[in-house]
Amino acid sequence: MSLLDVSGLDAGYGELQVLSDVDLTVADGEYVAIVGPNGAGKSTAMKSVFGIADRQGGTITFDGTDITSYPPETVIHEGLSYVPQTANVFPSLTVDENLRLGGYILDEIPTARREAIFERFPVLANRGNQTAGTLSGGQQQMLAMGCALMLDPDLLLLDEPSAGLAPDLVGEMFDRIDDVNDAGTAVLVVEQNAKEALRRCDRGYVLANGENRYEGSGDDLLNDEEVRRQFLGG
């Protein structure tokens, strides 16, 4: 049975419908990428899972629980964390305070988990008292991932983790995602950088115009003539 099961999802914002009849699954420990052109509804799919976009039809189940109607503050209790593309840290709070809120729903944050996050993202280690708004874009992205990992989630949702990063940092970001996945956390990533995402993931979906277009292992999609021609620039 899959960990996340999205079936027949219609979603959007208010009256506007962006997705129609989208299916999506992520198995335990799997690394899944959603790619596709701008405006395809990739981010909307992710936001629907987390209760930020409006679900207009279909069902979303996580680990056997129907979360279709859950708002974000309820979804997070189910074992999935979400890193938005932008505005994913609180700029006026310190790094420490941001991490503390990452574990807001816990009674107490295990010390070992905090330390593990500083180990994984050494760039944060000596910046506990620095205001998040003064961090560089790459550091903010690391902090945002660190916050999401404070809950040790079963599934990590990442919306465009490489967007806005300097080119030499993109590879490092993908390495960090690999680390998280290797440690057993399932990952669902939405990426503009389709080739890199498909190279790294287990399985990928190509969305276009709010609908499922292609689905397959990352390598199969990378080598598919049609996918290459239409979505990967030849």
């Binding site: 974000p72 979400y82 938005p84 609180f90 807001y104």
Partner: peptide, 10 residues
Amino acid sequence: DDESLARVRG
């Protein structure tokens, strides 16, 4: 700072 992100944090 950001009410929407606050909700994402639970």
